[in-house]
Simulated assay, not measured.
Amino acid sequence: MMRPKKILLVDDNDDYQKLLSKNLTKDGFIIETANNGLQALDVLKEGNFTPDLLLIDLMMPEMSGLELLKKLKDNKSTHKSKFVMLTAKNNIKEITQAFELGASEYLLKTDNLIVMLEKIYEICEIEHTVRANRKNDFISILEVTNVIHDFKVISYDDNTLTLITEQELPLHATIKVNNKKIKTLKNTHYPVACEVQECRIEDDGIKVICTFLDQAA
């Protein structure tokens, strides 16, 4: 039986980190996490965790993903590890720098969760089909990072929200809306959760109709 693969996930977004590590753990990986490059170096310095794969966010405070790669270039504890960068945007310059520093691949945070897991299995050279979709399991990573820059609020009332987006969202997925007027409507300081009920192509983009959930995101 093949030993479980070890992954060090380095990302400063708590929601994203928890979602990805939870699902990777469900799929049999052994996961350690760090909120920035300095914490990642501390995990590796202890010598108790030798990762097969490091998933490293490009944009982080204190020490960026590129700076961490530079530090790890001659690190004995990771000389057999694979480095994969996580990025919210296709920044060719930064991605090129990452490859020059030893990264073997990059993954977009906007990929949906199932696609993300499949890519990680492929990178780890594991022949495996990820879990079948279950309700609320197939969601876009974009939906849990509160990064909703490509969403335009069209209309809303106490129960329903209509958005124009650039990408289609799965029906019944839960998204978080970080919009000042919506947060005021729901009397909260936090992003507001709603469920996708309808998604259709319009002339100016993809129209998404959602209903608000009871709890704030």
Rank of each mutant, 00 (worst) to 15 (best):
S140Y: 12
I30K: 14
D52V: 15
I92E: 00
C199F: 04
T184P: 01
M63D: 02
I141N: 05
K18I: 11
D12V: 07
L8T: 08
S64N: 07
I31C: 11
V208Q: 10
Q39G: 04
L185T: 15
D150V: 02
M2K: 13
N187D: 13
S77L: 08
D52H: 15
N23K: 13
I120S: 04
V147F: 14
L108R: 13
L69N: 08
D137I: 09
K26A: 14
E62R: 15
N90R: 04
T78Q: 10
L163W: 03
Q197S: 03
E67S: 15
E46V: 14
A217R: 09
Q17M: 15
S21V: 05
I182F: 02
D150Q: 07
K80H: 10
E105L: 13
I154N: 10
K71G: 00
L161G: 02
E125F: 13
E166F: 08
E122Y: 04
I123M: 08
I92L: 05
K207C: 15
G47H: 13
H189C: 07
D214A: 11
S81H: 03
D214C: 06
E62M: 14
L171W: 09
N187H: 14
L117R: 00
T188M: 03
L68D: 01
N13W: 03
K18P: 08
M60I: 00
R200K: 08
